[in-house]
Amino acid sequence: MKKYSLAIIAMMLISFFTHASNEAYVKAMQKELQAMGSAQSPEDLQKVANGFARIATMAPEEWLPEYYAGLALANAGFRSQGGIEEKDTFFEKAKKHAEKAASISPDNSEIVALQGFITMGELAADPNSRGQHLSAQAMQTFNKAVNLNRKNPRAVVMLAQMELGMAQFFGQGPEKACGLVETALDMFEKEENKENNDPFAPKWGKDMALQMKGACS
């Protein structure tokens, strides 16, 4: 009996500690996600990324902290008003986090889409000399993300964005891109209504789809 009690106490203690660290993880993630929602400047986004990076060192088996650190830095790169070099520094940091996330969770559609998003940022930093090379690479990456998960609205909407740019460039109609935007919006809606078992699963990107929808109609 005594043995059993000891075992039960030990188990309770273990679950208490894991629960405690899990609770800390949840709290920290909630805090940083909230901060990310209100972050405006690249400096704020860098701070958010630092926060996620800290969580990542505490929870090395989770891909989401690395993913969000990468996403925050990619957004910082997009919003940076500096020159190409400053933007590239953000994207370079973002890539490192995305790579780490991918090594924790390989073949993850969300991470692949984030990698494509970073490539899109590098392209936007210097479209003249990077356009040819990187637009193909970004397209390829989004296609891969869609193939890994056909229900990932972020992969679809960013693919639509690339398609739209391509169509404008070649003076073609935006039909294909706009069709993809509609699909993406459907998926966003489903995502919102679905109970996700991971409360921190990526949910961003709908505003991008809405903005594009405006351009389509």
Partner: peptide
């Protein structure tokens, strides 16, 4: 240096340097 990640190793506690 702004944006430096400053934290207590092995905890969730940390902050970043300001501009």
């Amino acid at each position: 240096i702004p944006g430096v990640n400053i934290y207590l190793k092995g905890t969730f506690e940390g902050t970043s340097s300001e501009i």
